[in-house]
């Protein structure tokens, strides 16, 4: 699983941090999403997929094959 984020689409609602806090964070400078790990371990996959689904700005992309 490869994760990427698009800060231009981020609306800082914080859903990703609540759902997968070891993968996503928010910058204290500007509130934008920060990716903590691009290739999270399989145990985190369900949380990461949910975080992508819940993201109101659709700023998170998950590539399963990569």
């Amino acid at each position: 699983m490869l994760v990427s984020v698009d800060q231009d689409r981020c609306c800082s609602a914080g859903q990703c941090v609540l759902t997968a806090p070891t993968v996503f964070d928010q910058s204290t400078e500007d509130g934008y999403v920060q990716l903590l790990q691009e290739r999270p371990e399989p145990a985190l996959a369900a949380d990461v997929r949910l975080a992508a689904a819940l993201c109101p700005g659709r700023a998170i992309t998950v590539s399963e094959s990569a």
């Binding site: 609306c11 800082s12 806090p21 204290t28 500007d30 934008y32």
Partner: peptide, 16 residues
């Protein structure tokens, strides 16, 4: 909208 909302985003960060 984004210009005004983004002035507030650091106020309601999850860790804050």
């Amino acid at each position: 909208h984004a210009r005004l909302r983004r002035m507030l985003t650091t106020e309601f960060l999850v860790k804050r």
